[in-house]
């Protein structure tokens, strides 16, 4: 379940073919501002229309299992403890203890200091450990601290690093700074895979989301991720759709695939299925794989499990039948 992006080497982190674009602040700005605009109303109408797809029976069973396999089961709280993280890791490996046919989640997502605990529990289960680094969630720290944060997590065994971009720099137009920071973090990741969090709720416009997507992809991010979960709004269907358009277009331009991770606010199976429909119809079926699409979530998993049980037993289940970890 390891991402298999074609840009694997840390030494040449940035995606190829964009040297001219990223040569200077002005060329980078020209490129990003030359991307086609996004009309908010049209984009949201399209997302809403994808949300009206009716996914039933076999398609629903497929979608629920796929969604479970895509969950980055997340706990990012000041009150996190090794005990909490161990419980979460166990749940990620065996989401439904009563049903061995239930697939595991993709990863657990924790703060760097919890990576070791998580890794210990997960072992060689195939469930990855993802760590939020780079002064998550605000990203307001010096670059060397962000890099140290990243290296710590990787050394502790993180398979994936979820970094945050410097939104202040982005919003004030210092795109090259954001770009170089992503490149540097990517290098610090070593073998770990990098997800780049935009905090789309702070970027405000879909035009900004599209620009941030290209910026992160050109800088070599393996995944682009909507949000930290600490800012509202977090993931939305239209924002995710804009990012899926970006990875689709990026592959058309470069041949390289980049993954997408909406995070925060996705709580129901119904919502998760809308996202999968959007993946399917916007980016294409190639992205319907945990290597290329993830849900950053915690409560979503239990709802998926309840729906899964409903489908196998034919009756509605209740929260008491699923673990709260």
């Amino acid at each position: 379940m390891t991402p298999t992006s074609t840009t694997a080497s840390a030494s040449s982190a940035a995606a190829g073919g964009f040297d001219d674009v990223t040569a200077s602040e002005s060329s980078l700005r020209r490129f990003l501002h030359g991307l086609p605009g996004v009309d908010q109303v049209g984009a949201e109408a399209r997302a809403a229309s994808l949300g009206t797809r009716s996914i039933k029976t076999t398609a629903k069973a497929y979608a629920i299992d796929l969604a479970i396999r895509m969950v980055d089961l997340t706990t990012l709280e000041g009150q996190d403890t090794p005990g909490k993280v161990r419980a979460l890791a166990s749940k990620a490996m065996r989401p439904d203890p009563a049903d061995p046919s239930c697939p595991p989640a993709a990863a657990v997502c924790v703060y760097p200091d919890m990576v070791g605990v998580a890794k210990e529990t997960l072992g060689s289960s195939g469930v990855n450990v993802a760590a939020v680094a780079t002064a998550f969630p605000s990203g307001r720290a010096a670059l060397d601290i962000k890099l140290a944060d990243t290296r710590d997590a990787v050394e502790a065994g993180a398979d994936e690093i979820d970094m945050v971009i410097d939104r202040g720099a982005f919003l004030s137009g210092r795109y090259l700074q954001v770009f170089e920071e992503i490149v540097a973090v990517r290098e610090a990741c070593g073998p770990a895979h990098l997800k780049v969090i935009f905090e789309t709720g702070e970027l405000q416009t879909y035009d900004n989301v599209r620009r941030a997507s290209w910026l992160a992809m050109m800088a070599g991010g393996h995944f682009i991720k909507t949000s930290t979960g600490k800012v509202q709004p977090a993931a939305t269907l239209p924002v995710t759709m804009i990012m899926l358009e970006a990875v689709r277009d990026f592959r058309a331009a470069t041949g390289q695939m980049v993954g997408v991770k909406p995070a925060g606010g996705i709580r129901s199976s119904k919502d998760a299925i809308k996202y999968l429909v959007t993946v399917n119809e916007v980016a294409g079926p190639d992205w319907l794989d945990p290597d290329w699409f993830r849900f950053g979530a915690s409560t979503l998993l239990n709802d998926l499990l309840m729906q899964r049980t409903k489908m196998t037993t034919g009756r509605y289940s209740g929260p008491d039948y699923f673990t709260l970890d």
Binding site: S54, K56, T58, A59, K60, Y62, A63, P285
Partner: peptide, 9 residues
């Protein structure tokens, strides 16, 4: 397996 939408009449 692909994401084939089952009939939803």
């Amino acid at each position: 397996m692909t994401f084939d939408y089952a009939p939803a009449p």
